[in-house]
Amino acid sequence: MPPTLTDPALDYLLAAAGLTLTEAQKADLKTIHDSLAAMKERVRTPRGHMAELAHTYGFTEEDMA
């Protein structure tokens, strides 16, 4: 599946950030763009406290629901 990040869009974003990349670096960045977008969406999804690692274990039945 080809990346959805177009060359003009990438060039605009890099110029706005003040970055200069080689063509190889641009190609690598384009291959991971879709995966990064999916990761950002997952990270921004609200989760309850049960999604966090536990350091103590004192869960109630309500916690487990």
Rank of each mutant, 00 (worst) to 15 (best):
A27C: 02
E62L: 07
E23H: 07
M39F: 12
E41Q: 13
T4Y: 14
M39R: 13
R42D: 10
S35D: 12
A16R: 07
R47K: 15
K30P: 01
L5C: 12
Q25R: 00
T31E: 03
D34Q: 04
E52L: 14
T56I: 13
G18K: 05
L13Y: 10
A16Y: 09
T20M: 01
P46E: 03
L14M: 03
L5Q: 04
A27D: 05
T31M: 02
V43T: 12
L36Y: 07
Q25T: 04
D63P: 04
A37I: 05
P2A: 08
T31D: 01
P3M: 03
F59H: 11
L53R: 15
T6Y: 07
A9V: 09
P46I: 06
H33R: 01
L19E: 13
Q25D: 04
K40V: 13
L14V: 02
L14D: 02
L29T: 01
E41R: 12
T20G: 00
H55R: 15
E23V: 09
A51F: 10
R47M: 13
A51P: 02
T56A: 13
D28Q: 11
L10F: 00
A9H: 10
D11P: 01
S35Q: 09
R44S: 14
S35A: 11
H49P: 15
M64C: 14
G48D: 14
P46K: 06
M50C: 13
A17E: 11
L21G: 06
A24C: 02
R42V: 09
A27K: 04
H33T: 05
A37D: 08
T22G: 06
M39S: 14
A37M: 13
L19Y: 10
G58T: 11
A15M: 11
L10D: 02
M39P: 03
T20C: 01
Q25G: 02
T20H: 07
I32R: 05
A24Y: 05
T45W: 02
F59P: 08
A16V: 08
D34M: 00
T45I: 04
K30T: 00
L29D: 01
A17C: 12
K30R: 15
L21I: 03
L19M: 13
P8G: 02
Y12D: 12
L53S: 15
